[in-house]
Amino acid sequence: MPAEGPAGTGFVHHACLYGSDAEFLATAVPFVRDGLAAGEPVLAATTPANIELLQRALGERAHALDTAETAYFGRRPVERVTAFLRYHDRRARPGRRTRMIAEPVWGGKSARQVAEWKRMESGLNVLLAALPVWMICPYDTRTVPADVARAACATHPARLDGRRLIPCAGYADPGAYAAEVAPPRSPAPPGAARTGPTARRAAVRRFARERAVAAGLSGERLALAVLAVCEAAGYLLAGGGTRVALRAWEEPGAVAYELLCTRDGGRALAVPAFVGFHPPGPAAHPEDGLWLARTLSESLEVRAKGALTRVTLRIAGPGDAERL
C-alpha cells in the first residue's frame, strides 16, 4: 500500500543525500512506487545511470514513470523552473499531487553558476509554494562538492533517507539565503561605455545594439542580446522607475550590461525575491519581460540598495573562432 504523502496541498521540498546506488534506490523507489500506486504523475529527472537503476527496480511499472536526463532538463535556473512548471501544468491531475525527483547537475559549473543554482534550490520554496508538488532533490555525495552537499540542508526544509524524514536544522529563509550566497558584484570597469539616465526605450535599444555590435555579435545573436536588454529596462520602467542609466563592457566570453534604475522620491523599486522566474501565462504580467531577459541571458541579477535598483545581465559573446 502507498504511504501517505505530506499533509496539505502546497509545495513539499525534500533533499536526498546519497553515497551509493543502493542509498539512491532506497529513497527513490518507494517515492515513485507510492506515487504511481496513488495515481499521481511521477517524474524522475536524474542521471541516465540513475534512470536505468530506477527502471530496473520498478520492473513492469517502469513504463508509467516519466523520465528526463537532468543535464538537459533546464540548462540554467530560469529554464529549470520553467520545466518544472510546464511539467506540472501538462500532467497535473485534479485532487492529486505531482511527484518529481529533480537532481541538480553540479559538475563543471563555475563559482557564479553554483551560486545561482544554490539560490534557485532555495527559491523553489517560494516559486512553487502554491503548487501540489512533492519534490525530492538527490545529491550524490560521491561527486558533489562538500559545500554543495552542506547547502542542501539550507535550501530544503527536510531530507529523506529511505522513508525516514529528517528535518534540516540549518534550513534558511529563501530570501535571506539568496542574499547570503549572491555572487560578488563585478562593478563596471572605468572604461565601460555609458549612456543615460533616460526614459526613452529607443535610446536603450540603440545603446544595447551598439555595444553588442562592438563585442562582435551579429545576426540572431545580436537581435536577442538587444531584446534582453530592452526587456530588462522595460521591467524597471514599468515597475515605477523613471530613468535608466546603462553601462556595458566586455568580459571573457560575454558582454555585460548594467542597468541602474532611479525613481522620483529617492527610493529603490520594490523588487520581489526571485523575480522573473515564472514564465508568461495567459494574462500579461509585469514580470514577463524580465523572465524573457533571464531566458536570453547567461546570467541576470537584480539588486536593490538605497535609491538604486541594479540589474546586471551577461550575454554570451562570440567564441574565438567566430572572431577570426
Rank of each mutant, 00 (worst) to 15 (best):
T242L: 01
Y139D: 00
N125W: 01
P30V: 09
A57F: 04
A176S: 05
E322L: 04
V275N: 01
T70A: 14
L131Y: 12
G8S: 07
L260F: 02
E116C: 03
A232P: 00
G306T: 13
P280M: 05
V133C: 09
H14W: 14
V148M: 07
A129T: 08
G39E: 03
A307T: 09
F207C: 10
L224D: 11
A169C: 00
T198D: 01
R267N: 02
A304Y: 05
G240D: 00
L236F: 01
R56P: 00
A203V: 14
Y171K: 02
L43C: 13
G8M: 08
A248G: 03
I136E: 02
Q113H: 13
C137P: 00
P187A: 08
A172Q: 15
Y18K: 05
A7R: 12
D34H: 10
E23H: 05
P157E: 09
V133E: 08
R142F: 12
E52F: 03
V105N: 02
V244P: 11
A149N: 00
P252W: 12
E250V: 14
F274D: 15
A270K: 03
G108L: 09
A45C: 08
H14D: 09
R33N: 06
A176L: 09
G281K: 01
D173W: 04
A256Q: 11
A188T: 11
F277K: 06
A71F: 05
S20R: 13
G95N: 13
K118W: 04
R205N: 04
R294L: 09
E231R: 11
P145V: 11
A28M: 02
L324E: 14
E69D: 09
C230H: 05
N125E: 01
F31Y: 10
P104V: 13
D320E: 15
L308D: 05
A270N: 03
A192N: 04
A45H: 09
G170K: 06
A223R: 15
D173A: 04
V144Y: 14
P190F: 07
P189Y: 06
L313Y: 06
L324I: 12
V29S: 00
E258G: 08
A188E: 12
V255A: 00
A293M: 05
G191T: 08
Q113L: 12
V213K: 13
A254T: 08
G266M: 01
P286E: 07
A146N: 02
T295K: 15
V244H: 12
A111N: 12
A284F: 04
P6Y: 11
M135I: 04
Y87E: 14
H278I: 14
G253F: 13
T46Y: 09
T242M: 00
A64M: 07
V126C: 07
P187C: 02
A154Y: 07
V32P: 00
A178E: 14
R86C: 02
L131M: 11
K109Q: 09
A208M: 08
R163W: 01
V81G: 10
P187I: 01
E250A: 15
A176Y: 01
K305H: 06
M120E: 15
G95A: 13
P252A: 11
D264F: 02
T155H: 03
T67I: 13
P190Q: 08
V105H: 07
G306K: 13
A238Y: 00
I101S: 02
A129P: 03
R112F: 12
A214R: 15
W117P: 00
P6I: 07
V275W: 01
F277Q: 05
R80N: 10
A228L: 05
